[in-house]
C-alpha cells in the first residue's frame, strides 16, 4: 500500500477504477480532474478527514487495490444530520472566493450562450467577444493573476496541488485562445465546444479552490502572512485596474436576456 501512497491519483484510478467511487463517497472528486498528478497521500492529507474516516478510506482503497487480501474496513459512525460544509476564510482568501461568484454566474449562462449560436449576427459575435473579454480580463488577468503572482508564491510551487492549479489555468487559456481563433473563422462548432469545456473545467477548478485549496492554505498561513496577502491583493487590484462593474453589468444583461426569453 505504501507504494500507492506515492503514486499519482489518475494512474491509480486508471488501474483500479473502483478507487474513484471510494473517493467520491468522501466528497473527494478526483475523477473528473484533467491533470490527476496529485499523490494519493497528499490528497488524503489535504481533505482533512477525521482520523476514523481517514482510516476507513485507506482501508477501502487498500481493498479495492488488493481484493484478494483480507482487509478489515473500520466502521465510522455516520453523523445523523448531514449539514452542508461551511467554510470560513481569512479576508484575502474570502476575496478570491467572492470573485468566483461572478465567474460562476458566467459559467451558469454558458449553455444558453452556446445553444443556437449564430455567428452571422453582429449581436452574437459581440456576445462571444464580450464573454472572451470577461474570461481574459476578469477571470484570468484580475483573478488568476493574483493567485499565480502572489498567493502561490507563499507555497511550494512544485507541489502537486499547485501544479494542478497552474495546469487548469493554462488549459483555460488555451480554450479561450482557440475560441478567439474560431470566432475569426466563424467556426460555431468549436466555440460552442470550447465554451462547454471551459464551463466544465472552471466548475471543477472553483470547487477545488473553494473547498480544498483555500481552506488548506488558510491553515498554513501565519497571521502576518494573511495581512501581507491582503495588502498585496489590494495593491494588485489597483494596479491591474480591471473595471469589475463592467463585467457585472455584462452578466446582469445576459441574465436578464435569458430570463426574458424563458418568460
Amino acid at each position: 500500500m505504501e507504494a500507492y501512497l506515492n503514486r499519482g491519483i489518475k494512474e491509480i484510478i486508471e488501474e483500479f477504477p473502483e478507487v474513484e467511487d471510494v473517493l467520491n463517497d468522501y466528497d473527494i472528486g478526483c475523477g473528473p480532474c484533467n491533470v490527476g498528478i496529485c499523490l494519493l497521500k497528499d490528497i488524503v492529507a489535504i481533505h482533512r478527514l477525521s482520523e476514523d474516516q481517514e482510516q476507513q478510506l485507506m482501508a477501502r482503497i487498500a481493498k479495492a487495490i488488493h481484493p484478494d487480501r483480507d482487509i478489515r474496513v473500520p466502521r465510522v459512525e455516520k453523523k445523523t444530520e448531514a449539514k452542508p460544509k461551511e467554510f470560513k476564510y481569512s479576508p484575502p482568501m474570502k476575496k478570491l472566493v467572492d470573485e468566483h461568484v461572478l465567474i460562476k454566474r458566467w459559467i451558469a449562462l454558458i449553455p444558453e450562450v452556446a445553444k443556437d449560436l449564430d455567428l452571422e449576427s453582429e449581436e452574437s459575435r459581440r456576445l462571444i467577444l464580450d464573454g472572451i473579454d470577461m474570461i481574459r480580463s476578469y477571470a484570468d488577468k484580475f483573478h488568476h493573476a493574483k493567485e499565480e503572482d502572489i498567493l502561490f508564491k507563499y507555497f511550494d510551487e512544485n507541489s502537486d496541488i499547485l501544479e494542478v492549479m497552474h495546469a487548469d489555468h493554462a488549459h483555460a487559456r488555451s480554450l479561450v485562445k482557440e475560441m478567439q481563433d474560431a470566432l475569426e473563422k466563424r467556426d460555431r462548432k468549436t466555440i460552442a465546444k470550447n465554451l462547454m469545456a471551459y464551463r466544465e473545467l472552471l466548475t471543477e477548478h472553483i470547487r477545488k479552490e473553494d473547498e480544498i485549496l483555500y481552506p488548506w492554505m488558510d491553515d498554513q498561513l501565519s497571521t502576518h502572512q494573511v495581512g501581507e496577502l491582503f495588502s498585496k491583493f489590494d495593491e494588485a487590484d489597483q494596479k491591474i485596474g480591471v473595471p469589475t462593474d463592467k463585467y457585472e453589468n455584462f452578466i446582469n444583461r445576459l441574465e436578464n436576456k435569458f430570463e426574458n426569453q424563458e418568460g
Binding site: 470560513k88 479576508p91 474570502k94 494573511v226 491582503f230
Partner: peptide, 24 residues
C-alpha cells in the same frame, strides 16, 4: 484603510473557544 481583523475568545480556564477572521 481596510485590514484583516481576527478575534480570539478565551475561556475563563484558559481554553481557546473561538478563533476567527472578521470580514474585512
Amino acid at each position: 484603510r481596510k485590514i484583516p481583523i481576527k478575534y480570539v475568545v478565551v475561556g475563563i480556564q484558559g481554553e481557546i473557544l473561538q478563533e476567527e477572521w472578521v470580514a474585512a
